[in-house]
């Protein structure tokens, strides 16, 4: 039983947490691709920037002496998301909209997004240095340990408070997004524009409005993902820059342009990463008792060494691109 609890801690919980963050990031990328048809690299900076906004707000709360029952990072999240959405709109207006107006090719927009990445990255480092920050300087990070002796485990089930909240918040956001896309007028218009932008225009859909809504959602969800990642680990200027490729992998595996695909892709990449570096000996150790001597399990039995964890996502990405570029949910291929 101990082994099973260990597996839950190491794979199920971590995979879920990672999957949530990847999924939230990938939704933004996939929506932007669906509507504007370009790979938005600067999405990482929407995430990191959003996390820093949340961090500043949380620090302000602490300075004003406001104490909250749940981690302040989650309390300020709604405000931070609004600000991040405004930031996303500003970035589009300042950098991408002029290029679109000129009729620039998607590749040009992609390169422009690299420029935006560098600028925001530079600005963040300029103001915050290259060090890392913690949301939990003024309050404790609560860790729940569930004693599992009842089912014969010597290890407790461990999950932190931010992790619990993160999974809940992701679930709620995904449901909200689902209802938005399938029930609301604007959400349906967004799907229509992703499906066939010319026809959407012909139908009288206000495409400029749809573009704005897309940036708002992408910015807000990006901020959510970035903040929650920072709450789970630490906040640093290259927080999301380092994981933008796994997030792209999630979006592509799920099929670019497909919101539900992005969620599935995020979970898939998250679990693949944790499973690939998991030391199977820890789970299968009881087998040693029945295996003959020459077949005893080695002390570490992982598919890839831990230092190659991020590489797993790249390999999945490359294989998906080669075997099924439209992704498992058959996204926009043209």
């Amino acid at each position: 039983m101990t082994e099973l609890i260990f597996f839950t801690n190491q794979v199920i919980i971590s995979g879920l947490v990672l999957g949530c963050i990847y999924a939230l990031g990938a939704i933004g990328i996939t929506l932007i691709f669906g509507i504007l048809r370009f790979a938005h690299f600067a999405h990482s900076e929407l995430m990191t920037g959003g996390a820093f906004i949340a961090f500043l707000l949380a620090s302000a709360f602490a300075a004003w002496g406001i104490v909250t029952p749940i981690p302040t990072g989650f309390v300020v999240l709604p405000i931070a998301m609004v600000l991040a959405a405004i930031m996303a709109l500003g970035i589009d207006k300042g950098f991408y909209a002029p290029l679109r107006k000129r009729g620039a090719k998607p590749v040009t927009l992609l390169i422009a997004s690299i420029g935006v990445t560098l600028m925001i990255q530079g600005l963040i480092r300029l103001f915050f240095g290259a060090g890392s920050y913690s949301f939990f300087e003024h309050e404790p990070k609560e860790v729940f340990r569930f004693d599992m002796a009842g089912i014969g485990s010597t290890r407790p089930l461990v999950i932190t408070e931010p992790q619990v909240l993160m999974i809940l918040v992701t679930l709620v956001s995904v449901l909200a997004l689902h209802f938005f896309l399938t029930r609301s007028r604007l959400g349906k218009a967004m799907r229509a524009m992703a499906d066939n932008a010319d026809l959407a225009q012909v139908s009288g859909i206000n495409t400029a409005l749809v573009v704005r809504v897309t940036w708002i959602i992408a910015g807000a969800l990006g901020c959510m993902a970035g903040t929650m990642l920072a709450l789970d680990v630490t906040l640093k200027p290259d927080l999301a820059f380092n994981i933008i490729l796994p997030i792209f992998a999630a979006a592509i595996v799920g099929g670019l342009g497909q919101a539900y695909g992005a969620i599935a892709g995020g979970m898939l990449i998250g679990f693949a990463e944790t499973l690939a570096v998991f030391n199977w000996t820890m789970l299968l150790r009881p087998l040693n008792a029945i295996l003959p001597d020459w077949m005893q399990l080695p002390p570490t039995l992982a598919l890839v060494p831990t230092e190659y964890k991020l590489t797993v996502a790249f390999v999945i990405l490359v294989v998906t691109l080669l075997v099924r570029p439209t992704g498992i949910f058959k996204g926009a291929s043209s």
Binding site: I114, V116, L123
Partner: peptide, 9 residues
């Protein structure tokens, strides 16, 4: 890094 981004945009 910022300058690089600025130049390209």
């Amino acid at each position: 890094v910022f300058v690089l981004g600025l130049v390209i945009t």
